[in-house]
Amino acid sequence: MKTYNNKAWWFVLPVILSVAFSAIVPLMTVVNYSVQDILGPDQSVFVGMEWFREVMRDEDLHGALARQLWFSLAVLSIEIPLGIGVALTMPAQGWRASLSLVLVALPLLIPWNVVGTIWQIFGRGDIGLMGKLINDAGISYNYTGDSWDAWLTVLLMDVWHWTPLVVLLCYAGLRAIPDAYYQAAKIDGASRFAVFRFIQLPKMRNVLMIAVLLRFMDSFMIYTEPFVLTGGGPGNATTFLSQYLTQKAVGQFDLGPAAAFSLIYFLIILLFSFVLYNWMQRVGTGDKT
């Protein structure tokens, strides 16, 4: 007869409790809302999967989801290469290194709604430096009226705001490469590109994975900056998922559909992060899947 010692549960208990309060309980509240129709403070009806069905058929949601996917894709395909590129050109040591780090990190220190406000003014055709210059150059640019302009402005703002994060991560990854690698590459007669391809890029793998995941999750949940800059407009041009959700939950007070969508939203992010993570784990290691 084997005896089990259950003392270990006591050690796990604090973690279970803190995770319960920080994640599971709030999440369950959302689950609770998502299957009920809240008619009044004390009145609710169980509706099963009804809200999920409704949300999935919502045309506005499809639009927001598509915009969101394109946006995140654009963010990743611009910020990651740009971040790597900037990190590669930054000085490795001395006062120049410190100075460039501070300069690069500046946008990260600005509160998100302030970033939105900065770009709102910056892009204005009448008084904004960027908007005025573009218009003066003969290119019609108006982010409040033209949906394409609005979308590009939000993208540009995100690139400005968040590429520094990718730069910092890549910079840290690059600095962690021992000098011997570069020396060996010199002795082996490797070209500048070969050094990047076979030393720097593989050694940055882990930081790049963090950068991609962080930028994907953050860009997929973007809310404050476009809200301040364009308010989701013109039309729905820059209404991304978070804003759509907020309109549903706070604006229209459709708690049920909003809760159902929150869960779907959560699962989409989880799924994409999982796929990205697994893909990046394997890429470049030669393990065939």
Binding site: P178, A180, Q183, A184, D188, G189, F198, I199, T285, G286
Partner: peptide, 17 residues
């Protein structure tokens, strides 16, 4: 790279990929 020299370092340097 123009000298006919090879060097082995303290820590093994290999190209991981």
């Amino acid at each position: 790279e123009s000298r006919n020299i090879a060097q082995v370092f303290q820590f093994p340097v290999i190209y991981d990929t």
